[in-house]
Amino acid sequence: MSDWFSTLASHYHWQAALAVLAGVVLITKVGQWLAFRVPALQRMREVNRDEDSKKKALPKYPPVMKASRNIGAFTNLAFFVLILPFCVTFTAESIGWIVLDAVIILMVYDFFYYLCHRFWFHGKGWMRRIHAVHHQARKPTHIDAYYVHPVETFVGIALFLGSLALLAAVLGPFHVATVIATYVIFTQLNIINHTFVDLPYFPFRGLSWITAKHHVHHENMHRGNYATITLLYDKLFGTLD
């Protein structure tokens, strides 16, 4: 028993997990600071804040957002303490492998999310009613990324973290930089998807396209565009709207 515990403890790299947390926070903060130094993005931020303030005044928003944030924080904390230390390493990797691993994690997660979103969230069972809370936002702005039933918040985060853990078990622990990159992309794209962006010109045309496609999905419960990282699976399976 003691040998088993010692072996397990030897694979528990809490320092690497802590480095991931620090990296995610730092890159997110610095990235946002840099992005909003751009006048066009700052203007869109102000538009979203104006609309968000109106929604925050509605009685339905604060309790749902609070519950969603609480379950999200608890889920992430449990993962960072109990699971991530077994999935991450400081062992040197080439930039090419780091990028490839990040792509694999994100695309595997997006595949699982596509299936859940299409057949479970938009199915005929109880999860559809839970997902309908989020779909009350017909014209999403920044705040609607957080206006999610706590059960759906848990499922969404668990799908991403579970995909990362599953792949780490199969492929071996991922480099700290890989996990930081995938975590930042996962969180930020899920937020960006719900913002209002109207900048149909270079270099922001792609950003406007991404948000427009997700806004189409929010128009009713029968629209496509179920993936969240890319729309590749929607294109492959005929649900791109």
Rank of each mutant, 00 (worst) to 15 (best):
A227Q: 02
K213H: 12
E219A: 04
T230G: 15
W209M: 04
A212V: 01
N225H: 09
I229C: 01
H218V: 06
D234Y: 05
T228H: 14
T230C: 12
T239F: 10
L207D: 02
K213Q: 09
T239V: 07
E219M: 14
H222P: 01
H217I: 06
L231H: 15
N220Y: 00
Y226V: 06
H218P: 01
T239M: 13
G206R: 07
Y226S: 08
M221W: 01
L240W: 13
H218L: 06
L236D: 08
K235T: 14
K235H: 14
A227D: 02
G206M: 02
A227R: 08
W209G: 06
N225L: 08
L231W: 11
H222G: 05
N220D: 15
T211G: 00
K235I: 09
L232P: 09
N225Y: 09
H222L: 07
L207V: 07
K235Q: 15
I210P: 03
H214L: 03
H215L: 08
H218E: 05
I210S: 01
R223A: 14
L231P: 04
G206Y: 02
G224R: 11
L240M: 15
L240K: 04
T239H: 03
L232E: 01
M221Y: 08
F237S: 08
K213C: 00
V216L: 03
K213Y: 05
I210D: 03
V216K: 10
Y226Q: 13
G238P: 09
T239S: 15
R223I: 06
W209S: 01
H214G: 04
G224W: 02
N225I: 12
T211Q: 01
I229D: 04
L207F: 00
N220W: 00
G238Q: 01
L240E: 09
N225G: 07
H222E: 13
Y226I: 13
W209H: 12
T230F: 06
H222D: 11
K235C: 00
I210K: 00
E219P: 03
I210C: 02
A212M: 05
Y233V: 12
L207S: 00
A227W: 05
A227H: 14
D241N: 14
G238C: 11
E219I: 12
N225K: 12
G238S: 07
G224D: 12
S208C: 05
F237K: 13
D241A: 10
I210G: 02
L240V: 11
